[in-house]
């Protein structure tokens, strides 16, 4: 089972609306791409050997006055193809009805986790308003995916995305599995530190801001980190992810495969850790 943990379905034809698409180009920061139908998406998944994709909506009600993919749109895609997609929820922590929005996503839309973007949503993970959100995640046993490190999206002060700004949330809620996306790049060492300290801290491989996929993964796994750190110290805390549409999943997969990881580490990275993170592998 190969699971891509970080996908933004902004180009999915199933939820395409021309005005929203062009607005999202500006708000999300992408261009020169067009809507993709399911045939194209599944073909690309087949080339990359990807079985499932985790879809992230984004609630930007108080910062941008809009959503970049709503919880309902992510749910619609899952309803169309429940065997290929998993929906996370999003909520803007500063909206007054944030707890209600999140509970509805868990209760009604069966969201499997929560996606938060501290820089884009302009909040610190340790703010008081976050506590009710964490409590809901604890009550529903849902993991949280934080965007972390560099975000290309416009209007994203990186200070909110620094891994150290998320540490207290990880520390204070050991029962919530929390992923800091993109290896919190460029703060890879800080991310490593968090994974050593906290078993509920996870990260993902959607790092391709420089160079080719092979070069990027090689640098991440053998230079930014020691060449055996992943296998020795946190083999069960790194998940495969692409950050589609910025980076195509089959190319990230190519870079991961070029690492030549041992079978157990490779299996954990490509899907096993995602199942644990999603709460679908209680045995681990």
């Amino acid at each position: 089972m190969v699971i891509d943990m970080n996908v933004h379905p902004v180009c999915y034809k199933a939820i395409y609306d021309e005005d929203e698409f062009h607005r999202n180009e500006r708000v999300f920061g992408f261009g020169l791409m067009g809507p993709q139908d399911y045939d194209e998406i599944f073909t690309e998944m087949a080339v990359g050997g990807v079985d499932k994709k985790v879809l992230h909506p984004m609630d930007l009600t108080t910062t941008e006055g809009c959503w970049v993919v709503t919880n309902e749109e992510a749910y619609k895609i899952v309803c169309d193809h429940p065997d290929r997609f998993i929906n996370f929820a999003s909520v803007d922590p500063h909206r007054p009805d944030a707890p209600e929005v999140l509970e509805a996503a868990f209760e009604v839309l069966n969201a499997k986790g929560l996606y938060l973007h501290p820089a884009k949503q302009r909040f610190y993970a340790y703010e008081a308003c976050m506590e009710s959100i964490y409590q809901i995640c604890e009550r529903y046993h849902k993991p949280i995916m934080f965007d972390a490190g560099l975000s290309w999206e416009p209007n994203t002060p990186t200070k909110y995305n620094h891994p150290l700004a998320i540490e207290e949330a990880i520390m204070s809620h050991p029962d919530i599995r929390m992923c800091l996306a993109h290896f919190a790049w460029p703060w890879v060492r800080e991310m490593v530190m968090l994974m050593i300290k906290y078993p509920n801290a996870y990260t993902d491989t959607s790092v391709l801001y420089l160079d080719s996929p092979e070069e990027s993964m090689r640098r991440l796994f053998t230079e930014d980190m020691g060449p055996l750190w992943f296998q020795r110290s946190f083999m069960h805390q790194v998940m495969f992810a692409s950050n589609t549409p910025r980076f195509r999943s089959f190319k990230i997969r190519r870079g991961v495969e070029a690492l030549g990881l041992p079978q157990d580490a490779r299996d954990a990275l490509l899907g096993g850790n995602a199942l644990t993170f999603l709460g679908e592998d209680d045995a681990r």
Binding site: L32, M33, Y209, L210, D211, S212, R246, F247
Partner: peptide, 19 residues
């Protein structure tokens, strides 16, 4: 596939890395 291609960098117009 692998060479020192100048195009392997982040492209602001796409919001993606040209690989």
């Amino acid at each position: 596939l692998e060479d020192d291609y100048a195009h392997a960098h982040f492209l602001p117009s796409y919001g993606a890395t040209g690989n």
